[in-house]
Amino acid sequence: MPIPERNNEGFLEDAWQWNEAIASKIASESNIDLDEKHWEIIWLLRDFYKEHEISPPSNRLFVKAVREILGEEKGNSIYLMQLFPGTPAKTACRIAGLPRPTNCL
C-alpha cells in the first residue's frame, strides 16, 4: 500500500489519510515494531487530534497529555522514550499521522 503524501520530515500532509497499515509502515522506517503499548499511545494521539485539531506542541506537553489521560505510569518521558525513540512527541506523531509538533526542534 502506498503511503499518502508526506513532508520532508516524514509527517503526513493530511492526518485524515492515515490508517493502521500506514502507521506500521512509517514505524518500520524507524525500526519500530508496533505492539499494544504503542497502539495505546497512537490512539490516544488520534483521539487528541480529533478533539483539539492540534498535535501536542512539544515533548513536555505530549508527556503531560499522556499523564492526564493514562496516569503517571505511562505519562513519563522514560516510558515514552522507550516506545518512541528520539524525540518521543515527534516520533509518535509521525507514526500516528499527525502534524509535526510545532515546538519540537
Binding site: 478533539e51 485539531e53 492540534i54 503531560k64 492526564e68
Partner: peptide, 21 residues
C-alpha cells in the same frame, strides 16, 4: 468551524489548555 476558512478551530485548540496545565 475553522475548516470553512481552512484553519484549525480555535475553541478546540483551546480545549487542550487545562490538560496542558
Amino acid at each position: 468551524d475553522g475548516a470553512s476558512i481552512n484553519q484549525k478551530t480555535v475553541s478546540r485548540n483551546l480545549g487542550a489548555a487545562r490538560m496542558f496545565g
